[in-house]
Simulated scan of single mutants.
Amino acid sequence: MAGDLINVTFSTASVFPRRCAYAFELASRVGYDGMEVMVWSDPATQDATKLIDLSDKYQIPITSIHAPSLVVSQNVWGVRPARKLERAVQLAEQVGASTVVVHPPFVWQPRYAAVFHEHVKVLSRGTGITIAVENMYPWRRKNREYLAYLPHWDLTTQDYDAVTLDLSHASTALQDSLELTKKLGSSLRHVHLADGTGSAKDEHLVPGMGTQPAREVIEYLVEKNWDGDLCVEIGTRKVDNAAHRESLVRESLEFARSAISGASVPAMPVAHEEALHHRPTDAWN
């Protein structure tokens, strides 16, 4: 079956601010196929030996690394964005991950932005690691939009060999994820599965709890025999307790697998209740 080509993986970002080790334990217990490690201030996310130990302990492979390209990780691995990406690729090689996710440069990094496209291409071809540049969004405040990323936040205006589609970012950019999926074509190698309501906040809701066509995106990818990772990256920073977080993590996995198999969407009582009293989970702004 075409859907057998798709792994549903779990981003350590989904448990922020909890530590990396907790994400591994939770993903393994719930039944995810692999892990994406967001490199940030947690020392374990920067240490290949510790990550391999976690992977072995919980019997779950590390399939992707997210380079430290967030505002909250500006000081991780120094201040040079090119070096940060190079170290992320080295880490991926050490832990056996095939993909590195990276954001385009910020507007205050114009020198790197001028060489970013070529740096990504050369580094990827030299190592065999897929470097998938992630779609972003304009920063919006008081009904005004600000360009925060160079050359642009919209991947359809660029020409990268490999890209990551984040459904929450598409929502914040007021774009349709299914349309983006079709436009990105064969360059789409990785998906951050989440949802949003079009808020200026980067919400990272449980898939199916916002207005993005998350199920349709998955069904389209299955139809096209896509073989990348669907990586669940939801915001759980403001959950009430560990059981609440686990319910959202479990419901996200069930949503993905039902869409891949073509089964009916399962009831998601916890996520639905949260949506009725929606509080933006802006962990990655």
Rank of each mutant, 00 (worst) to 15 (best):
K183E: 12
T156P: 05
L85V: 15
N285W: 08
Q212I: 09
V89M: 04
T181K: 01
Q59Y: 01
T99I: 15
L248M: 13
A27S: 07
A256V: 07
A243E: 15
M136C: 12
N143C: 07
P207Q: 10
N241A: 05
I60G: 06
E223D: 09
V71Y: 11
D56W: 02
L230F: 07
R279H: 04
V107G: 13
A113P: 11
S55E: 01
R144I: 06
A113S: 13
D4M: 12
L205V: 03
A27L: 03
A92Y: 07
K201E: 04
N143G: 01
V89T: 13
S258F: 07
Y220M: 01
M1R: 03
W139F: 14
Q175F: 00
I52M: 13
S28G: 15
A114T: 08
L205R: 14
N143D: 14
M35N: 03
A256P: 05
T99G: 02
A267E: 15
P269D: 09
I62M: 06
G128S: 06
L165Q: 05
T281R: 05
A283M: 10
V79G: 02
L184N: 06
S73D: 04
T127C: 07
A113T: 13
V37M: 05
Q74A: 15
T172F: 00
R215M: 10
V39R: 11
G3A: 11
A114E: 15
V163F: 02
T281Y: 05
C231P: 00
H117D: 13
V30T: 15
A97P: 12
T63R: 14
S11I: 02
A2S: 14
